[in-house]
């Protein structure tokens, strides 16, 4: 990226000072209140520690162990499934945002946007309860509907079925439109000049073509943002599993984040949990950087 002319005239020290003046507050807050407490967790990953007795230095022992841990391996595979699903399911949000963007009546659009935001006030607990009352094999809504349709053989045990459980958890994202992502796309589309669409309309581009060749490329930057958010969430998240399935049946829905949580708070292996956390961190970082590289390459191509 070429430096702006004005900046180029400055000496590096001035540039640095100017840059620091802007980023220092954020950086300092982040270093002091986020990174610093986190180091406790990072250095624990080289110890065996139960939370109260003296921590024992084990070097890379925890990581070695992690390599041979079959539960962790299962958890990684499950994570890969959830990650793939999360990436594929980013697309309904893109479509919804574009459709919303194309609604011309600004007042209506405003109302829709507010409606998109409102689900953020619904607490996790209510969502969990709702799905519990839908998935429950005995009194849940789904099985009752299936029975009402006269197909009692098709009833499922849903979360209790090792083959279905991951799909069930993924389906809890229905309708797969995320408020934040949608509004970020919308912001991206809105910041592009209207004239671009006018030109497209003059060229006689249909709605699908406009979507593929105009809107989609325009929000590539926003897509990248949301992709990274999605990757991070899918790789480190575990809340739903903790409440609904405990990683089961067996380990069918176990994910690394939940395994880390259990290792710390159920078996008091704080050092081991920290090493899982650090491993997850490195993996997310690599995958994120790879995906960014991939997009950079495709953009340049």
């Amino acid at each position: 990226m070429a430096a702006p002319r004005a900046a180029a005239r400055r000496r590096p020290l001035d540039q640095l000072l100017l840059g620091l003046a802007f980023v220092a507050p954020a950086l300092l807050l982040n270093l002091v209140f986020d990174w610093y407490p986190m180091f406790d967790g990072i250095y624990r990953s080289f110890y065996r520690w139960d939370g109260y007795s003296t921590a024992v230095w084990v070097g890379l022992g925890n990581f070695e162990r992690l390599l041979n841990d079959t539960v962790f391996r299962t958890a990684l595979w499950n994570m890969a499934f959830f990650l793939a699903a999360a990436i594929v399911l980013m697309f309904p949000t893109i479509v919804a945002s574009v459709v919303l963007f194309r609604i011309r009546h600004q007042r209506t659009q405003f109302v829709y946007r507010v409606l998109f935001c409102i689900p953020m006030v619904v607490p996790w607990l209510v969502i969990m309860l709702m799905w519990q009352f839908m998935y429950n094999p005995q009194y849940g809504l789904f099985n009752r509907l299936i029975e009402a349709l006269g197909m009692p053989d098709l009833t499922q045990t849903w979360l209790g079925d090792p083959d279905l459980v991951k799909w069930c958890l993924v389906f809890m994202g229905f309708p797969f439109v995320t408020t934040n992502a949608a509004l970020i796309y919308l912001g991206g589309l809105k910041s592009v000049s209207e004239s671009v669409w006018e030109a497209a309309a003059l060229d006689g581009a249909g709605p699908v073509q406009t979507f593929l060749y105009l809107e989609l490329p325009l929000i590539a930057g926003q897509f990248k943002l949301n992709l990274i958010g999605t990757i991070t969430a899918a790789m480190t998240g575990y809340g739903t599993q903790l409440i609904l399935t405990k990683g089961g049946p067996g380990f069918a829905s176990m994910v690394p984040g939940l395994y880390m949580y259990f290792s710390a708070f159920k078996s008091q292996k704080y050092g081991y949990a920290a090493s899982i956390g650090l491993t997850l961190f490195l993996m997310s970082l690599v995958i994120t950087l790879l995906s960014m590289r991939f997009f950079k390459d495709t953009e340049e191509a």
């Binding site: 982040n30 990174w35 407490p37 986190m38 180091f39 991070t232 880390m260 961190f281």
Partner: peptide, 19 residues
């Protein structure tokens, strides 16, 4: 400097309550 901020996004922080 950006990397420092950016990387922090991926570090799960379930054990930093006490620190």
């Amino acid at each position: 400097l950006f990397g420092i901020l950016f990387a922090k996004m991926m570090l799960p922080g379930i054990m930093n309550l006490i620190p």
